[in-house]
Nucleic acid binder design. Structure first.
Length: 431
RNA sequence: GUGGGCGUAGCUCAGCUGGUAGAGCCCCAGACUGUGGAUCUGGUUGUCGCGGGUUCGAUCCCCGUCGCUCACCCCA
């Protein structure tokens, strides 16, 4: 019998690793909510059309990376490969534009792409991100980058590189793509084989090439930043100035090409060099036409999404300690068969106030102490010990070893008192 | 989809030119006849990823397959 195991590119999260995830999630929520964003949760699967229409039928995501399947009535469904399309769909479907001029939302959740897994890349991965729908102001582009930057800073990540670019809009991009293709065709002989293929499919992708031979060609290629129309150039300039004022260093990157077709104007990525080949922690940009493409009224938008696996991975490599303040934990242990009957009722009383766990069967004291240490308990409540009378228990502090007998009638009261001493500043800790 | 590396105990890994397995950690127990994190002693755990081939005999060699991993592509 072969044992069933997790699907390739997916994994279980537990223990210390899960603790880091929870810390990251709480940080995301805290920073986003402080910044005026509300959570949104959209379905994990959607109509396939939603993604092919928004992300673009020529992109790798749509062409080969989607988890698409027919449901029982033959409709084509897809596990979401990214978050923005769903958010915009939900925005239109729930008529959020009628309720407020600006919608600011954030999300956290799993995404799915059928790719060969490697470091920092999985088939089920997790992203958090924000979207601002409604306004067109560069203020929100800068705020988006700032919120992302601030989340990374709040979890202790420094040495970040913010790359900023613009892909123009419908009035200046087509002309640029034409100019770029003309240039690349002229230097066709100097390009790598892969890039020659890209030239036909999507010339912008050539700019992102990592092939050594392409670098020189790309370096001399016309830059879209010089071809931007006046309004796009002005927008980019405003984003830069806002970032400068906010003290967020950034580098202009003319070759920034993102994997989704819906972007207009601003695009950006934040990188960290401790991540191997997949150095992007996340990215995003503006998508002023997406709502229209999905059948709604024109609604400008800007957002980012970030990879949780990648952020956790960098934090691990940098040995950043992500720990939530630990609440007091109480372990209840019976030392006799009779006392074990008392365990559950006492646990239920304790759990009204504290985090408490206990053992079902009596065990010898040494074992109990070892277990308490291993589990990081703060207090140990021993029932049925030799020196405790019926109706009483021995409470022992695991840090100092101090112990005292207490009456079960006054359990909560006494624990409260002891707990406050543990929490008190300057409490002796024997580490 | 393509290429490299790797699959041996719960974990990290050894295993010499083929003779059907070991170390450390962890865990459990004892020394310490009811007071912990140290030390010492002892103990449990394996379809050697799976299938086939070569061989008297395969964890080891060959082929296939599955999985993991890193890289390419692309991206979170």
């Amino acid at each position: 019998m072969t044992r069933i195991q997790a699907i390739r590119g997916t994994k279980d999260l537990l223990g210390d690793e899960l603790a880091r995830w929870r810390f990251l999630e709480e940080t995301v929520r805290a920073v986003a909510e402080r910044s005026g964003y509300e959570e949104i949760r959209t379905p994990i699967f959607e109509s396939t059309d939603l993604f092919s229409r928004s992300i673009g039928t020529d992109t790798d995501i749509v062409q080969k990376e989607m988890y698409t399947f027919p449901d029982r009535k033959g409709r084509s469904l897809t596990l979401r490969p990214e978050g923005t399309a769903s958010v915009v769909r939900a925005f239109l479907e729930n008529h959020l534009a009628r309720e407020r001029p600006i919608a600011k939302v954030y999300y956290i959740g799993p995404m799915f792409r059928y790719e060969r897994p490697q470091k920092g890349r999985f088939r089920q991965f997790h992203q958090f991100g924000t979207e601002v729908l409604g306004p067109e102001d560069a203020f929100y582009d800068a705020e988006t980058i700032a919120v992302f930057h601030s989340i990374l800073g709040s979890v202790g990540l420094g040495d970040l590189t913010v790359r900023l670019g613009s892909v123009g809009d419908e009035s200046c991009r087509p002309a640029y793509v034409e100019r770029l293709s003309a240039y690349l065709r002229g230097r066709r002989e100097d390009l790598s084989e892969i890039s020659r293929e890209r030239l036909e499919r999507n010339p912008l992708r050539v700019l992102d090439s990592k092939e050594e031979e392409d670098r020189a060609v790309v370096r001399e290629a016309p830059s879209i930043l010089e071809d931007l129309c006046d309004s796009c150039a002005k927008h980019l300039d405003e984003v830069r100035r806002a970032l400068d004022r906010a003290g967020i260093p950034h580098a202009l990157d003319a070759g920034l090409v993102r994997g989704l077709d819906y972007y207009t104007r601003t695009v950006f990525e934040i990188h960290h060099d401790r991540l191997g080949a997949q150095s992007a922690l996340g990215g995003g940009g503006r998508y002023d036409r997406l709502a229209e493409d999905l059948g709604g009224p024109r609604t400008p938008g800007v957002g980012f999404s970030a990879g949780m696996e990648r952020i956790v991975s960098v934090a691990e490599e940098l040995a950043i300690r992500w720990e939530m303040p630990r609440e007091l934990r109480i372990l209840v242990a019976p030392l006799s068969e009779r006392a074990s009957e008392e365990v559950l009722p006492i646990l239920l009383r304790l759990r009204a106030r504290w985090r408490a766990d206990g053992s079902a069967r009596p065990r010898n004291l040494k074992t109990v102490l070892k277990q308490a240490n291993r589990e990081g308990a703060g207090l140990l409540l021993l029932l049925g010990g030799e020196e405790s009378a019926p109706g009483s228990a021995l409470v022992k502090r695991l840090d100092s070893g101090e112990q005292e007998n207490i009456l079960l009638d006054r359990l909560e009261e006494r624990i409260e008192e002891i707990a406050s001493r543990i929490a008190a500043p300057g409490a002796a800790r024997k580490e």
